[in-house]
Amino acid sequence: MTGTTASRMRGGPSSAALPAENLTHVELTWVEKKIEHWIRFGTPVHERILDRQRRVLSFRPGTVLAFVRWASNDFGTIISRIDIMRAVARGEAYQTLPFVRPGGDILLKIAGWPKVERVLQMIDAIEYLGIDPDAVSADHWRHVHNRIAVGEAPRAYTVEHHRAYLLRRRAAP
């Protein structure tokens, strides 16, 4: 979890107002140089520590988050992936995803370190603009997924794109 996510969570709202079954739960594991699951962005409302290597972060419905999974063995990396998803409300349709309960609305699903690294760089570029990646248009994450999947370069997210997205969202009923 990034430092900004941790600080937002400590000062953020309590999950006590929302029953646990209405939250999306993501299990994170950290075994140095073996298994590393972390949240790149997204604001959790609750954290439960299971043991020294595992914890569960919980997210309100509608929260957009990036879940990164990496694992290796004695011969090198065996999995490297990033999933950007929207936490779903109870009764809403969702796709299943390992370590995520119940699942989420998957906006981007990328595997392979070079592609994952590309997505992480795009997230860094969005943050450089002063925009929280969890506030970015879901359509942008779908665009990035589709372009990377076919080997094309995705368009960069700009302040103008973000402004237009916010205006569309405000105008929608």
Rank of each mutant, 00 (worst) to 15 (best):
A171P: 10
L107F: 06
P133M: 05
H162C: 08
D132Q: 08
H46C: 11
P44L: 11
G12I: 04
Y94S: 04
F59R: 11
Y128L: 08
G42P: 14
E47G: 05
L97D: 07
I35Y: 10
R48D: 15
Y128F: 10
V56L: 09
W38S: 13
G104I: 03
R55T: 11
F59K: 12
T5W: 07
G151N: 04
S58T: 08
T5P: 03
G151F: 03
R81L: 06
D139V: 05
I131N: 02
K109C: 09
I126G: 01
T63M: 03
V45A: 10
I106D: 05
R8N: 05
V88A: 02
G91Y: 05
R147D: 03
N146M: 09
T29E: 14
E21Q: 14
I148T: 09
T5A: 02
V88H: 03
H25W: 01
S15C: 03
W113H: 10
H46L: 15
H25P: 02
Y128I: 07
R60C: 08
T24F: 01
R8T: 04
D139T: 11
D134C: 06
K33P: 00
R52M: 12
I110D: 00
E117S: 10
R147W: 06
V64D: 11
L167P: 00
D51L: 08
F59H: 14
A153C: 13
G112M: 14
P114S: 07
Q95E: 06
R55F: 09
P133S: 07
V119D: 04
M9F: 04
P61I: 09
A156V: 13
A138H: 01
D139L: 04
W70N: 03
A171H: 07
I84H: 02
R163I: 13
G91A: 08
H25K: 05
G3I: 06
T29M: 13
R55L: 15
R69S: 13
A149M: 00
A153Y: 11
T96I: 04
V88R: 02
A138S: 01
G12T: 07
S15R: 05
V136T: 13
R69G: 09
W141Q: 11
V68E: 05
A17G: 13
D83V: 07
T2C: 06
